[in-house]
């Protein structure tokens, strides 16, 4: 049980980081289908810089920075050019897959090297707690980053003025604009910050969950992050639970696959998606999605 919990948390962390990034972007009213690509950039950037510098910390920072650079591209098309968000997101995914695949072969002909990785760091005392001690406090720094970022983000959204402005822009860009909040500026910043988190999430894949980079190694996790945001109903707390649920589902799936039980592991893989569809279909009354999600904002000309 404890091992399963530990694995669930470990697997949930990249999903959670990416989903929190997506949350920031969506709360500003932009739907970003390109998380998968941003994560891939983060995974590669983190890996390459960790290999070159020998420092995992520089690597993680580099991963975030690499994704943020691609985020600028996304924001340019979506915020400045007001191009369709779905189409640009799709392009970002393809672009990132191609660019990172190309770069890894170019930089490391033959086999990609092994990068330094983050080890687990046990927090004194807390790691000795029963049940959750190992799962939460004997983990890689990414887990601690999540423990730090999630409440911070929840607090920022609820209790800080930049957070309020972000929500205002995503909920009602017209009202925010009328109140003097720069819609484009806020959205651009949200995309940058969200991309940074997606990049960190990607680096967790290459620097903590494995020790190398392989082509397309995100394997759909960006889309799962997208799903987690919906499943968590656009709230940091809900997103943590949803990410843990998805993490547990894949931990369980690994275990089922290893044991060779009768229960097909595909069911556990499918379950989160089916549940999300059900949540979407059955959600009645007030929608929790930002009201202006997916809508490009143009000031009405008078």
């Amino acid at each position: 049980m404890e091992a399963l919990l530990e694995a669930a948390v470990r697997l949930a962390v990249p999903l959670l980081l990416a989903a929190l990034g997506e949350l920031i972007i969506e709360r500003s009213g932009i739907i970003n289908i390109g998380t998968e690509g941003l994560m891939l950039c983060g995974a590669f950037g983190g890996f390459a810089i960790a290999v070159a510098s020998g420092s995992v910390w520089l690597g993680a920072a580099g991963g975030g920075a690499a994704a943020a650079c691609v985020g600028v591209l996304f924001a340019y098309f979506v915020v400045v050019r007001r191009a369709d968000q779905i189409v640009v997101g799709t392009a970002i995914n393809l672009l990132a897959l191609g660019a990172t695949g190309l770069a890894v072969r170019a930089l490391y002909p033959g086999m990609a090297p092994v990068s330094p990785t983050f080890g687990t760091v046990a927090v004194p005392l807390l790691s000795e707690l029963p049940v959750i001690g190992g799962a939460l406090f004997r983990q890689t720094p990414y887990v601690y980053l999540c423990l730090l970022i999630t409440p911070l983000l929840a607090f920022a959204l609820a209790r800080s003025r930049p957070g309020l402005r972000l929500r205002a822009v995503g909920e009602c860009a017209r009202a925010a604009d009328a109140e003097g909040v720069g819609v484009s500026r806020t959205r651009f910043a949200a995309v940058l910050l969200g991309s940074l988190l997606a990049g960190l999430a990607g680096s967790a894949l290459s620097l903590a969950q494995s020790n190398t980079f392989t082509e397309g190694m995100t394997a759909g996790r960006g889309f799962i992050a997208l799903t987690i945001v919906i499943f968590g109903r656009w709230r940091p707390g809900g997103i943590v639970l949803a990410a843990l649920f998805f993490g547990a589902a894949s931990a369980l799936q690994h275990r089922l696959q290893a044991r060779g039980t009768d229960l097909p592991y595909q069911l556990t893989l499918m379950l989160p998606y089916v549940l999300t569809l059900l949540v979407l279909a059955l959600a009645s009354g007030r929608s929790s999605a930002p009201a202006d999600l997916g809508k490009a904002y143009r000031r009405e000309s008078r």
Partner: peptide
């Protein structure tokens, strides 16, 4: 508060 020009960083 969200657009109050006299507000600080926190709400």
């Amino acid at each position: 508060c969200f657009a109050d020009p006299s507000g600080g960083l926190l709400f």
